[in-house]
Amino acid sequence: MAVAQGSTCATGTTGQLRTVWPLEQANMPDPASGGRINPHPLTLVQTLRANGMTDRERSRLLRTPASQPELDHPQGRACDIMFNPHSHPSAAEGSQSRAWLITHQANLGIHYLIWQGRCWSADNPTWVSYRSSAYDCPNPNNLTGCHYDHIHVSMY
């Protein structure tokens, strides 16, 4: 799994989740950035939008930090779904979305999620503390770096 340098999510044995997916290239147009993304994140965002779970302003598909091309976003394998961490209804909606994503993991190709300083992986389907030396996580004061204002969805 390629998370930010100095970051960790637990890995281990699999449960009833799908963890084997064919390798896909970033060959689909990213409607958010004009870049290229893999088919799984594009399908995810289209599904979320069709079900009213996000909109264009709240989903980001591709970010390209040139210094870290090995990470999921620059490779077109990740999506961020934004929520307002200062709004109880918005944070509750994020938690509902998180549960929905896990329920649909096997159909969508979700590898791991990071939300509110915690990380869940299809390789080890339990929530563990998200640690990142780059962002000093866990740290609830670092809203973006420690994923308190968005769900990071990494795809196979």
Rank of each mutant, 00 (worst) to 15 (best):
S7Y: 05
C9L: 08
A10G: 11
T13R: 13
G15D: 11
L17V: 10
T19M: 01
T19G: 05
T19R: 02
L23P: 00
L23T: 07
E24Q: 09
E24T: 13
A26T: 12
A26C: 03
M28P: 05
P29S: 10
S33H: 05
G35I: 08
G35E: 09
I37G: 07
I37K: 06
I37R: 02
I37D: 02
H40Y: 14
H40M: 14
L42R: 01
T43K: 13
T43I: 12
L44A: 04
V45R: 08
Q46Y: 07
L48Y: 01
R49C: 05
N51K: 14
D55T: 06
D55C: 06
R56M: 12
E57V: 09
E57G: 12
L61M: 14
T64V: 14
T64I: 14
P65K: 04
A66L: 13
A66T: 11
S67N: 11
S67T: 14
Q68L: 13
E70F: 13
H73Q: 06
G76A: 01
R77N: 08
R77Y: 14
R77M: 07
A78M: 00
C79V: 15
I81D: 09
I81M: 10
I81P: 05
F83D: 01
N84R: 06
S87C: 09
A91N: 08
A91H: 11
A92K: 11
E93N: 12
E93G: 13
E93D: 14
S97R: 15
W100A: 04
A106Y: 02
H111K: 13
H111N: 15
Y112L: 04
W115N: 09
Q116L: 06
R118E: 12
C119P: 01
C119Q: 01
W120V: 01
W120M: 05
S121M: 03
D123A: 12
N124K: 14
N124Y: 06
V128G: 11
S129V: 15
R131P: 00
R131Y: 12
S132Q: 04
A134H: 12
Y135E: 07
Y135S: 07
Y135F: 15
P138L: 05
P140V: 08
N141I: 07
N142Q: 10
H147V: 04
H150D: 07
H152Y: 00
S154F: 00
M155N: 03
Y156K: 02
